[in-house]
């Protein structure tokens, strides 16, 4: 089921002597199922706001978000969220964190344990089933968070700089891991990052947003075949193109401020 954004605009109302802030201006996107989409843009441009709108956590000022033809707001379980800081429940073990959504749905204890156990195995978390998040490394915590989102079989998985706080070794490993999982499952993923290398390595398509208020500047298809070589000429060329467009956007802000 495809994700359709039509004419999304978002302005945060003025309050406490702070002027109103226009964050998003007329964003329209159509995302086909099974696609891996990366969203990049100058920092502070509203990428996170866009994700929160798609997740139904933030109301739009104008426009519509349709998921398989339905309004997304108030349709829990159809969108999965993965945050940079993992946002695991500190009081739940690995298995219980992964099974959270099944519990909300009312799945029986035994069945959700079994289901979660499948993810434990597939995500390399064996031996840590009964660990609490603070006992896991950052990379493991993020795998738990991804499993927790994926176990619900959401129609879209939204990731907000999920690997942003990991060291580069772990980050590379998790990127490859995510690609393997995604290629098996064919999830639709919208992946916000400020890291162009990451976007080029992971995505089918890169959406470049302008500085605030964010508009879609360009959609770049990453045509490099998979598995990709991070340093191939093709990847480098795409990276150069995307970086160039981002630089232009930064230039715009520099001139207007």
């Amino acid at each position: 089921m495809s994700l359709e954004l039509t004419g999304i605009a978002k302005t945060f109302a003025a309050r406490d002597k702070q002027p109103a802030v226009e964050v998003l201006r007329d964003i329209s996107l159509s995302i086909e199922p099974g696609r891996f989409i990366a969203v990049v843009g100058p920092s502070g441009c509203g990428k996170t706001t866009l994700l929160r709108i798609i997740a139904g956590l933030e109301p739009v000022s104008r426009g519509r978000v349709l998921l398989g033809g339905d309004e997304v707001q108030g349709s829990p379980g159809r969108v999965g969220l993965v945050f940079q800081d993992y946002a695991l429940f500190p009081w739940r073990t690995t298995v219980d964190n992964i099974a959270t959504g099944l519990q909300m749905k009312g799945t029986g204890r035994l069945q959700r344990r079994q289901e979660a156990q499948r993810y434990v195995a597939a995500f390399g978390l064996e031996g840590f089933e009964q660990s609490y998040p603070h006992q896991l490394s950052g990379g493991m915590q993020q795998r738990v968070a991804i499993a927790r989102a994926m176990i619900m079989e959401p129609e879209v998985i939204l990731m907000d700089e999920p690997f942003g706080s990991l060291d580069s070794q772990t980050r590379n490993a998790l990127q490859e891991f995510l690609l393997r999982v995604w290629q098996q499952r064919q999830d639709t993923i919208v992946f916000v990052t400020h890291n162009v290398d990451e976007a080029v390595f992971l995505a089918d398509e890169i959406i470049i947003l302008s500085a605030r208020p964010a508009r879609v500047v360009q959609r770049v298809n990453v045509e490099a075949s998979r598995p990709r070589d991070r340093t191939s000429a093709q990847c480098n060329a795409i990276r150069r193109r995307v970086l160039g467009m981002l630089q232009e956007q930064r230039g715009d802000t520099a001139m207007t401020t």
Binding site: G56, L57, G77, A87, T100, M104
Partner: peptide, 10 residues
Amino acid sequence: ALQEVARTLG
């Protein structure tokens, strides 16, 4: 964020 994750999980 924990509340939001919980909400998206139903």
